[in-house]
């Protein structure tokens, strides 16, 4: 069979069944967009994990005169207490690096970080206590540090950033799970819609099919236009989904977050391109399998 003839059959088929073709395009687009969103969120989480686990710190805040924690007994930490904590930290094998942040340094860093925020004016030197920033060689071992220093003299509190991050990553996991779940539902919708579309297209073209069977056209000749039609609309759907993911990432996500601290820890267009072949491959597989199964079921010799 001539390629030109198949192409003209596909074109006339799409034109005659335009509304169904459009709905397959849209449903495929939404399902692949959601799937892509879920997968991108996961990649973002992975990227961030790597970024943060390199920098993860346990902060040991020391007492100030105003500390309310019972451990402080209303006294600022003494120099001796401070030195004892520092030397203990340095002797621990779990600790990779220790860095002391004085009250001035803490104040300056705060002012820099929140320079655009009105609350800066209310915070004064001394409100943020001096602290030890501890970098762990294995970020999961933070419990050792916490338990050892929580009740040490002069320590107001021990804060572990991993706890905050854990929560954050958990939220990302939920987002991923939810969008992949929705994407799964939409893929089911897309598959059923493709099957219905093929049945409808076959019904619209029942005369042609009847004549094709009568004059001895092979099964593949009869089925090929349907399969190609599905491939065309499904591919258009994925292409639109990839386009939306790219635009969303570049214009909304990256442009929105690039100003903030995280810029090294963000996914970018490359991550969309990395997903693209999988999305296309998956949709093409679904389209071909659905077409072949539906046609086998509804177009007998």
């Amino acid at each position: 069979m001539k390629a030109g003839f198949i192409a003209s059959e596909v074109w006339s088929g799409l034109r005659r069944n335009l509304s169904m073709a459009l709905s397959v395009i849209l449903v495929t687009m939404v399902s692949m967009f959601l799937l892509g969103l879920g997968l991108l969120a996961q990649r973002q989480a992975d990227t961030m994990k790597g970024y943060w686990y390199d920098r993860i710190q346990v902060s040991i805040y020391l007492c100030t005169d105003n500390s309310l924690q019972p451990n402080c007994q209303n006294q600022a930490a003494t120099d001796a207490q401070q030195q004892s904590i520092e030397s203990q930290l340095k002797s621990m094998p779990e600790v990779k690096e220790v860095f002391h942040e004085s009250e001035e340094e803490a104040f300056n860093r705060f002012k820099e970080q929140f320079r655009n925020s009105p609350i800066t004016g209310n915070v004064q030197l001394g409100d943020i206590p001096q602290s030890f920033r501890v970098q762990l060689s294995d970020p999961t071992k933070y419990a050792v540090v916490t338990s050892q220093f929580e009740r040490a003299p002069g320590v107001a509190s021990v804060q572990d950033q991993e706890k905050v991050l854990k929560r954050f990553f958990q939220i990302i996991n939920w987002i991923t799970g939810f969008s992949v779940f929705l994407a799964g539902l939409m893929v089911i919708c897309a598959t059923l819609l493709m099957a219905t579309t093929i049945r409808q297209a076959a019904f619209i073209r029942r005369r042609e099919i009847g004549i094709m069977r009568l004059v001895g056209a092979s099964n593949w000749t009869i089925r090929m236009p349907f399969i190609i039609e599905m491939l065309v609309v499904a591919t258009m759907g994925v292409a639109l989904a990839v386009g939306m993911l790219w635009v969303g990432l570049r214009l909304i996500f990256n442009a929105g977050f690039n100003q903030v601290v995280l810029n090294k820890a963000l996914i970018g267009a490359n991550d969309v391109w990395a997903l693209t072949p999988w999305l296309f491959g998956g949709v093409i597989l679904i389209a071909v399998v659905t077409s072949v199964v539906t046609l086998r079921r509804y177009l007998r010799v």
Partner: peptide, 21 residues
């Protein structure tokens, strides 16, 4: 079933309702 199309090429068929496109 696979050989039916080739078989039908040996046969022409005409019906009361013409069945033209």
């Amino acid at each position: 079933a696979r050989k039916v199309p080739r078989f039908r090429r040996e046969i022409g068929a005409v019906f009361q309702d013409f069945r033209l496109l």
